[in-house]
């Protein structure tokens, strides 16, 4: 099974029809296990208390906001280098989903920040760079929605996505530099590698569940987009016949 074999949309739709129930089922089961671990098993943090439970949605959403952008970057390469016909379908469908998860990461981060920091928003390095990422998602969607011709829209979006990939590390770095300059004392720091296994396992399970959710929605959206293009082609045939 090579990737190019699935350049044929009909074959791709067949594959999706076969795989989707399994992926959706696995996602649902992982979510059930993850939520059970979070609410029944995972301990409360000795500093943050039960508020740490917000982490189990916040961190997977933040992870997905990056993962989704990377999916779009891979698709952008597929569009520009190999002209793979499914690549621009994949990129176009990933953008709104990525924007939704980035928004969730911001919203849950804010809800986590209010009890921890005492305000809804701080110009913390991590929050700020996620905000910039969110704006970039919206810009990408605006660009591809504004250009009417789907092929041109896909290529313009692909160029912008790749420019974004090059810039995201620079933005991240500069925002961190800016942040340390203005807020020398870190208000609150998440454990990083020192996180306790009792919390790490539920977090990983939830991250897996969210990733499965992304794959499910992404495949469904891609199926819709393929049908939409098919309808567009059929309408054009109909119009040319009517002449």
């Amino acid at each position: 099974m090579r990737l190019i074999d699935y350049a044929n949309p009909t074959r791709f739709l067949g594959l999706v029809a076969r795989l989707l129930p399994w992926i959706a089922g696995a996602t649902a089961v992982t979510f059930a296990i993850g939520l059970w671990l979070v609410f029944a098993v995972a301990p409360a943090d000795y500093q943050q208390g039960e508020t740490v439970k917000i982490m189990y949605v916040h961190v997977p959403c933040a992870w997905l906001s990056m993962f989704c952008y990377m999916t779009m970057a891979g698709s952008a390469l597929g569009t520009l280098v190999w002209r793979h016909p499914l690549a621009d379908v994949s990129a176009k469908c990933a953008a709104p989903i990525g924007a939704a998860f980035t928004f969730l990461a911001l919203a849950t981060g804010s809800l986590w920040g209010k009890p921890m920091w005492g305000t809804w928003w701080v110009w913390d390095a991590r929050l700020t760079s996620v905000l910039v990422l969110f704006i970039m998602y919206l810009g990408l969607i605006a660009l591809t929605e504004t250009i009417e011709d789907p092929v041109r829209a896909a290529r313009a979006g692909a160029v912008l996505t790749l420019v974004g990939v090059v810039n995201i590390p620079i933005i991240k770095f500069s925002v961190e530099w800016w942040n340390t300059l203005h807020q020398p004392a870190s208000v609150f720091r998440m454990g990083g590698s020192t996180i306790d296994p009792a919390m790490l396992v539920p977090l990983l399970v939830m991250a897996g569940a969210f990733t499965g959710l992304f794959v499910t929605v992404h495949l469904m959206a891609m199926r819709n987009e393929i049908l939409r293009r098919r309808i567009r082609a059929m309408r054009m045939i109909e119009a040319s016949r009517a002449e």
Binding site: I135, M136, G139, N167, S174, W177
Partner: peptide, 14 residues
């Protein structure tokens, strides 16, 4: 402006 402004954040900061 919407597309370019996020990319100019590093230049602005430094």
């Amino acid at each position: 402006a919407i597309l370019v402004l996020p990319l100019t954040v590093p230049v602005m900061i430094f």
